[in-house]
């Protein structure tokens, strides 16, 4: 956050303009019991970029995403090997508390999952848990800031006491994004955040992703080529647990080098 890097205008420009590394994954392997879900995945997440993960269903995108905030720990029989660094620090080191990692690496789920509490309490959940803020006034401020950041403030400022679950689907998803932002994370993981939304709501979230990438690194799983082209700086293709190809979005789409990527892109368009 402290760098003075100029933010380039378009996605490819930005990717080409040099970068600093936020997360560094090398030779990550994930096993569920005997099942080898991820094989030797190596990739870096840059600061303030949108990295899209694409690939057929069941290829390990979500599994990989869940490695980045240690949510795989909650699954029985799962085992992660390899190294994942966040700002040079191994997040799987024994001394690291996974709970702490999850405040730095936030996540937005596929289907909106607000708590059946008020809009306000939804946002305040994380900060209250971690004791970030003192006093009601500071909390009010943080709630407003987070909702503004998620582009939801104008729509909900008069109904902060209403249940988050009573909002529309698109609003709920932005509420979940605001809730993640309230923890002041450094990386945001999004697992198909618009797949359950109508096209209008999806477009709003897409714009929001682009906007948020000014401050956060965003790793995004999506099935939409168009969406990837619009928002992603770089794209990684997963195939059966392996990273088939990774590169600047436009390059990967226009000149795919790996035959599996070629098939996937042709299949998606043809």
């Amino acid at each position: 956050m402290e760098t003075t890097l100029e933010k380039p205008e378009t996605a490819p420009d930005r990717a080409a303009a040099g970068h600093e590394t936020k997360m560094e994954c090398s030779e990550v392997n994930v096993f569920y019991g005997d099942f080898h879900a991820i094989r030797d995945a190596t990739l870096n997440v840059h600061a303030r970029e949108v990295l899209a993960l694409m690939g057929p269903s069941g290829c390990g995108k979500t599994t990989f995403l869940r490695c980045l905030n240690r949510m795989n720990d909650a699954i029985e029989n799962s085992r992660v090997t390899g190294r994942i660094l966040l700002d040079g620090q191994d997040i799987y080191a024994p001394a690291i508390d996974p709970v702490h990692i999850r405040t730095r690496v936030g996540m937005v789920a596929q289907a909106p999952n607000p708590f059946p509490k008020s809009v306000y309490d939804n946002i305040a959940f994380g900060p209250r848990l971690h004791g970030f803020v003192k006093g009601r006034a500071e909390m009010d401020q943080l709630v407003e800031h987070s909702l503004r950041r998620a582009g939801l403030w104008d729509e909900v400022k008069d109904k902060l006491d209403e249940r988050g679950t009573d909002l529309s689907g698109g609003q709920q998803q932005r509420l979940c994004i605001a809730r993640a932002i309230a923890n002041d994370p450094e990386v945001l993981l999004m697992d198909e955040p618009v797949s359950s939304l109508d096209p209008n709501a999806a477009a709003i979230i897409e714009d929001l992703i682009t906007e948020l990438s000014e401050d956060y690194s965003i790793v995004l799983i999506t099935h939409s080529m168009e969406q990837t082209r619009r928002v992603a700086d770089r794209t990684a293709f997963f195939y059966l647990g392996e990273i088939a190809e990774i590169g600047i979005t436009q390059d990967v789409f226009d000149n795919p080098r790996d035959p599996r990527t070629v098939d996937f892109i042709r299949g998606a368009f043809g």
């Binding site: 949510m71 702490h100 848990l129």
Partner: peptide, 23 residues
């Protein structure tokens, strides 16, 4: 209680105990 609420709490950095008691 929907599993998505448990996941949501965990993803926001709640420990297992906090997830149970708060959500």
């Amino acid at each position: 209680v929907p599993p998505s609420l448990r996941t949501a709490a965990m993803e926001l950095g709640a420990s297992k105990m906090q997830t149970v008691s708060k959500v």
